[in-house]
């Protein structure tokens, strides 16, 4: 008997309406429906959510830690993108 391998799915839970789905973990399942049911049992036993997404892990494209500097460091010297960069006269009310 050959044992079958179920693919891996990443699980995202919406804690309540108004919030985005957030990654919580992963499950193995034969298909999407089964992944939803497994995710429900594994990740929402204590009312952690009102909605689930499951995505095949193989469909996720991730950035490489080696590119961290290239991708994210250019933002570090652009302080003018933050409101605290600017001075306004004493006593003027903020919007």
């Amino acid at each position: 008997m050959t044992d079958v391998r179920w693919p891996l799915w990443e699980v995202f839970v919406r804690a309540k309406n108004g919030l985005a789905h957030k990654h919580v973990g992963s499950v193995h399942a034969a298909d999407g429906r089964m992944a939803i049911e497994a995710a429900r049992d594994v990740y929402t036993r204590r009312m952690e959510g009102v909605s689930l997404w499951v995505v095949p892990s193989s469909a996720i494209v991730a950035s490489d830690p080696k590119e961290t500097t290239d991708l994210f460091e250019p933002a570090a010297d652009k302080v003018y993108r933050h409101p605290t960069f600017y001075t306004i006269p004493e006593g003027v009310k903020n919007i």
């Binding site: 008997m1 044992d3 079958v4 179920w6 034969a30 298909d31 089964m34």
Partner: peptide, 8 residues
């Protein structure tokens, strides 16, 4: 496990 994989 086999049945679920076959169904999928």
């Amino acid at each position: 496990r086999e049945a679920a994989a076959a169904h999928a």
